[in-house]
């Protein structure tokens, strides 16, 4: 079952990181679609984001390579560099001993931007709670529906003329949609 070339061997032993990144991404995606609570949706969003970061960092790994900081013998200010009279470019073999720094750089900024956007999303959900008194999606939809009905009554007290009917169409559409999903 796990011999060379078998698909399970490829997935579970040599590409486990990639498999787990898919699993985490799906957990995040499912939470964003199906969870009812807005905070749960945001946690799902963060799980989704870290799954992408895991994928990028897994790409940058090299077997038997060290972290992307120069060892003492390649350090531009170390004794070796002074003895040679300045830093030298690394040969192809030496390059292979360092992990790939490019994915690390891309993801480092993504993490910090991620927490800033998480804060923004939390601020929006706080505002929703202040306005509607709930952060559950189904209750929110009911309240929004009621508010729509109230404003419609205030704006168009007589709903007979065909002009008004056409204007109201998008609102009516949404009401029918939410009604269906509740059944």
């Amino acid at each position: 079952m796990f011999e060379d070339g078998a698909i399970l061997n490829e997935l579970f032993l040599e590409r486990l990181n990639y498999l787990i990144y898919v699993v985490l991404l799906l957990i995040g995606l499912y939470a964003m679609i199906a969870k009812n609570n807005l905070i749960k949706k945001l946690i799902g969003m963060s799980v989704f984001q870290t799954a992408i970061i895991l994928f990028y960092v897994s790409i940058g790994v090299k077997e038997d390579a060290t972290i992307p900081i120069y060892l003492p013998e390649h350090d531009p200010h170390g004794e070796h560099a002074h003895a040679r009279g300045g830093p030298e470019a690394l040969s192809r073999g030496q390059v292979a001993t360092y992990a790939n720094p490019l994915p690390h750089v891309l993801m480092l900024t993504a993490i910090v931007v991620g927490v800033a956007t998480l804060g923004l999303a939390l601020a929006v959900s706080l505002r929703i709670y202040q306005g509607y008194g709930t952060i559950e999606e189904d209750e929110l939809l009911v309240k929004l529906e009621r508010e729509d009905a109230r404003t419609r009554k205030a704006e168009f007290p007589v709903a007979d003329s065909p002009k008004v009917e056409s204007k109201r169409k998008p609102v009516a559409k949404r009401v029918s949609k939410t009604g269906k999903s509740k059944k």
Binding site: L16, P68, Y70, H74, P76, H77, E88, L90, N100, P101
Partner: peptide, 30 residues
């Protein structure tokens, strides 16, 4: 996973960053 010959790790851009950072900027942390 961890293959040094993978396209991402073997690309000229990454090799340039690893090989030339010390010469260009003298910063040890790439």
């Amino acid at each position: 996973w961890g293959n040094p010959q993978s396209p991402a790790s073997d690309s000229p851009v990454s090799s340039h960053f690893i090989g030339k950072t010390g010469v260009d900027t003298e910063v040890p942390n790439m």
